[in-house]
Design a protein around this nucleic acid. Structure first.
Lengths: 161, 161
DNA sequence: TCTCAATTTGATAATCGGTCTCATTTTTAG
DNA sequence: CTAAAAATGAGACCGATTATCAAATTGAGA
C-alpha cells in the first residue's frame, strides 16, 4: 500500500466513509497522470484504460482527495478546476503559458515572506494564497506566432522546476 | 465628458461600434459604485435607480469596458466574475477575507520585482499575474466565530490601502 | 435632416462546469 | 451473514455567462 493510499484510508476511516474499488482505481490513475488534470481529463483517461466509473464519481472522489489533504484544487483562468497531488510535495506557485497551456511550477520563499509581511501590515491572517504568472513560455516565444491553442486545449506538456 | 467616457468613446469609434445611452448609463453607475462589483450587483443597482437595461447588456458592456482597457475582470474564488475600474488606478493585488468578503487592496513592488526575477529564471515573459491572499481580516478575527456569510454574500464593505 | 445598413438591445434559450437526486449496489460493523 | 450506512451511475438540475434573434437604435453619408 502506498503512502498515499494510507493517507486516504486514514481519512476515510476517521470519517466513517468506505474504501471502494472505484476510489482505489481513481487514486491510482490520478497518481500516474500528469499534475494539474481536470476532472474531465481524468475521466477520459480512466475510460481509455477500460474503466466505467462515471464522471460524477470522479468529481466526488477528487473532492475527497482534497478533503483528505492528498490533493489541491487550482484554477488557472480557463474555467475548469485542476487537481494536483500535494502529498510530499513542497508548496509552489505557477507560471502559466497562455499559448501552449504549459504549467511551470516554482517556489520562492522571499515572495512568501513578503506576503506575510503585507498581511501583518493589514492585520490580516492568511490561510491560503494564489500566485500565478500568466504569459509566454520560452518555447512559445521562440516559435513566434504559431497556431494558437483552442479554448478547450488539452495540452499535456508540462515542466517542473 | 469624463476621461473615462473619452476612453470608451475612443475604443468605440476605433472599432466601428456605437455609443448608446445604455453604455453611457452603465459606465456612470459602474464608476459610482464600489470596486469589485459583479454583473448581477451592477444590474440590481441599475434597476434600483430606475434603469430597465437587461442583464445580458450589463455583461456585454462590462466586457466592452475590459476590451477598452477601462476595467479588469477578477475572480476571487466564489464563482462570479468581479469588475474594477483600472483607468488611472495603480496596479495592485488583493487580500480577500473569506469571512466577510471584504477585499483589501495592496501593492508591493518588491513582490513584483521578485516575480520578474522568477520569470527571467524560467525564460518566461509575464503579461499578467494574479496574487490573492485569502484569510481573515482584522475585524473578523476579533469577533471570533460570528455568523458566517452566505455563499452568495453581497457584502459591500471594502477597504482600500 | 433623412435614409438605411450595421450595430445594439431585451428576452430568453443554450452552454458549460459542476453538484444533486435517487434507485441500486457495495461495504463493513457486529 | 446481515442490515444499516455509504457509494455509485445516470441523468436532472444549478448558476454564471454567452448566444440567438427579432425589434429598436445609431450614425455615416446623401
Amino acid at each position: 500500500m502506498t503512502k498515499e493510499e494510507e493517507i486516504l484510508q486514514a481519512h476515510i476511516t476517521s470519517h466513517r466513509l468506505k474504501v471502494t474499488k472505484e476510489r482505489k482505481a481513481i487514486l491510482n490513475v490520478f497518481m500516474s497522470t500528469e499534475r494539474h488534470v481536470t476532472a474531465e481529463e481524468l475521466y477520459r483517461e480512466m475510460k481509455n484504460r477500460g474503466s466505467s466509473i462515471g464522471l460524477a464519481t470522479i468529481y466526488r472522489t477528487l473532492n475527497l482527495f482534497c478533503a483528505s489533504g492528498l490533493a489541491e484544487q487550482r484554477h488557472f483562468g480557463d474555467g475548469q478546476a485542476r487537481y494536483e497531488l500535494t502529498y510530499n510535495v513542497h508548496h509552489h506557485d505557477h507560471l502559466v503559458c497562455k499559448q501552449c497551456n504549459r504549467i511551470i511550477e516554482f517556489e520562492n520563499l522571499e515572495i512568501e515572506r513578503l506576503q506575510e509581511k503585507v498581511a501583518r501590515k493589514h492585520h490580516f491572517t492568511i490561510y491560503s494564497h494564489k500566485l500565478e504568472l500568466y504569459g509566454t513560455c520560452e518555447a512559445c516565444s521562440k516559435e513566434k506566432s504559431k497556431s494558437k491553442p483552442k479554448s478547450k486545449a488539452k495540452s499535456k506538456k508540462q515542466t517542473t522546476k
